[in-house]
Structure formats: C-alpha cells, structure tokens
Amino acid sequence: MTTNHGARRGPTLRELTVQALSSVERGYDLLAPKFDATPFRTPERILDDVVRALGPLGPFRAGLDICCGTGAGVRVLGEVCRERVVGVDFSAGMLDVAREAVRSADAKVQWVRADVRALPFAPAFDLAVSFGAFGHFLPKERPGLFAQVHSVLRPGGVFAFPIGAPPRPGSWPYWAMLGFDAAMRVRNAVWWPRFVMYYRTFPLTEVWPELERAGFEVELRPLAGLGHRPDGTPRAALVVARSALRG
C-alpha cells in the first residue's frame, strides 16, 4: 500500500472560514482537497509509532479505521492487517480524496460512507483504530460510539487510538485549547448548523470507564518514539481496548 500526500497548498483563510461556518459533514467536504496540507492531518511520526505499538498485539486479519478522513490511519492498518482494511467516514469529499491517495496492489482496501454512530458492519474486524476524530463527538455520544465499535469487533478484537498527555494548566497549549473550545461554544450558540469540534471533551479519566462499560478491557501503552515530558512521563500513549473473549 502506498499513500500519496505530497506537498499541496493549504486552505486559505476564507476557505477555513467557510468551512467553520458549515456543518461538520459539509465543512469536511469543502476542506477535503487540501486537508492533507493542514496541521489537522495526523503526522507520520505518530502513525509510525502506532504501527510499532500494534505489531506485538497481532496478528490481525481485518481492520477498520473509524472516521478515516483522507486515509492516514488506513496506512497503519495496511501494515498490520493481512487480509482486509476498511475506512469509514461520513464525508463523501474526504472519502474521494482517500480513494485517490491510497492505492493497494492487492485491493484489500475498501471505503464506506457511513455515520460511525450506526456502523453498518457485522462483528468481522480484529482491529479498529481512530486518529484525531473524537473531538467531533459530544460526551453524551461517546458511550454509543464505543458500543458501536465493540459491536463490529470479533471476540478478543482490539480498539486502539493514540492520546496525548494533557497540557499542564497555565501552559500555552492549555490556554490555546481552552480558547478554541470557548470560541467554538460561542459559535455554536449563535450559528446554525453546529460544527462540533472540541479539544477538551475527551479526558481519559472519563473515557476509560466508558470503554469498560462498553465491554472492553483497557490498558495504556506508551508511545516512546514521541518523546517524554520534563518529568519523564510519555508525551503520548496508545489506548488499547480489547473486546473480552466470549466463551
């Protein structure tokens, strides 16, 4: 599998403004042709570290990328899954770019347009991943989302996603995230349709028990390649949620 995300010109301020004033689906349809030139695309170094972390957890036959966007996570699945890789997203524009950018000589990649809150799959996957999409779900939607992921995994299947260490209170990333979320709440209070994207609505302290209630056994695996904070703790980790084996 090869992924082509060469140099492209990023979106203009006007294009970003139009996107931000649209619905989530329409906004990503508009942004799709230039998405890979934005900071929102998951960096290669994160993808590479996730591949290394997933290797010992396999082998995997079939993998599903939740909210696949332009297909960055599909590349990860292509390296660790032997038989079948599926990317699912509700933005037709993002899927069009993914189809063009990701090519597989063995034709094991499929693209499906669907709302991940109602996944149209049987329990046929050994691995599900997601990269950078959870800010698009309100906290009240997470239990249903996790239940949907659990429903499409085979017994013993793995749901994995990277998560960054929370910024320290008072640091510039802390204030940047706080400011972005505040601006987004104001925007959604005065403008319709809503554009749901928040950075501070996915705390691991809440997500961990929600995953357990959905039927997962959860552990954290440090992503050592992404470095450590001054106190020695990792900057990022892989959340590994395994579906319990059913006897």
Score class of each variant (00 low, 15 high):
residue 1 M to F: 12
residue 2 T to P: 12
residue 7 A to S: 14
residue 9 R to C: 13
residue 9 R to Y: 11
residue 10 G to I: 07
residue 11 P to S: 11
residue 12 T to R: 05
residue 13 L to S: 15
residue 13 L to N: 13
residue 14 R to L: 13
residue 15 E to P: 05
residue 18 V to K: 04
residue 26 R to W: 04
residue 29 D to W: 02
residue 31 L to R: 06
residue 32 A to M: 01
residue 38 T to A: 06
residue 40 F to L: 12
residue 40 F to V: 10
residue 42 T to E: 14
residue 44 E to Q: 14
residue 50 V to T: 11
residue 50 V to P: 08
residue 52 R to L: 15
residue 53 A to R: 05
residue 58 G to I: 09
residue 58 G to R: 13
residue 60 F to H: 06
residue 63 G to F: 05
residue 66 I to C: 00
residue 70 T to F: 07
residue 71 G to N: 04
residue 71 G to S: 08
residue 72 A to Q: 11
residue 72 A to P: 09
residue 76 V to M: 09
residue 77 L to A: 08
residue 77 L to R: 07
residue 78 G to Y: 10
residue 79 E to H: 12
residue 79 E to D: 13
residue 80 V to A: 07
residue 82 R to V: 15
residue 83 E to M: 09
residue 84 R to E: 11
residue 86 V to F: 07
residue 89 D to Q: 07
residue 90 F to E: 01
residue 95 L to Y: 01
residue 95 L to C: 07
residue 96 D to I: 00
residue 96 D to V: 09
residue 101 A to G: 14
residue 105 A to E: 15
residue 107 A to Y: 00
residue 109 V to G: 06
residue 109 V to C: 04
residue 112 V to P: 05
residue 113 R to P: 09
residue 113 R to G: 09
residue 113 R to V: 01
residue 114 A to W: 08
residue 115 D to C: 02
residue 117 R to A: 10
residue 117 R to L: 11
residue 120 P to Q: 00
residue 123 P to A: 05
residue 123 P to V: 04
residue 123 P to H: 00
residue 128 A to V: 04
residue 128 A to W: 01
residue 130 S to F: 10
residue 131 F to D: 06
residue 133 A to K: 00
residue 134 F to Y: 09
residue 137 F to E: 08
residue 140 K to L: 14
residue 141 E to N: 07
residue 142 R to I: 03
residue 144 G to L: 05
residue 148 Q to R: 11
residue 148 Q to C: 11
residue 149 V to T: 09
residue 150 H to T: 05
residue 151 S to M: 00
residue 151 S to G: 10
residue 151 S to C: 00
residue 153 L to T: 03
residue 153 L to Y: 00
residue 158 V to P: 03
residue 159 F to T: 08
residue 160 A to L: 02
residue 161 F to R: 01
residue 167 P to L: 05
residue 168 R to W: 07
residue 168 R to G: 01
residue 169 P to A: 01
residue 171 S to W: 03
residue 172 W to V: 15
residue 173 P to L: 06
residue 173 P to Y: 10
residue 177 M to G: 04
residue 177 M to T: 09
residue 183 A to K: 11
residue 184 M to K: 10
residue 185 R to Q: 13
residue 186 V to E: 00
residue 188 N to M: 03
residue 193 P to Q: 07
residue 193 P to V: 06
residue 194 R to M: 03
residue 195 F to G: 03
residue 197 M to P: 10
residue 197 M to W: 14
residue 198 Y to K: 02
residue 200 R to E: 08
residue 203 P to H: 02
residue 203 P to S: 04
residue 212 E to K: 06
residue 214 A to E: 13
residue 216 F to H: 01
residue 217 E to I: 09
residue 218 V to G: 00
residue 220 L to E: 07
residue 224 A to S: 15
residue 225 G to C: 04
residue 228 H to M: 13
residue 228 H to P: 05
residue 230 P to A: 10
residue 232 G to W: 03
residue 232 G to N: 02
residue 237 A to L: 06
residue 238 L to M: 12
residue 239 V to M: 02
residue 241 A to Y: 01
residue 241 A to F: 02
residue 245 L to Y: 10
residue 245 L to Q: 14
residue 246 R to W: 12
residue 247 G to I: 14
residue 247 G to A: 13
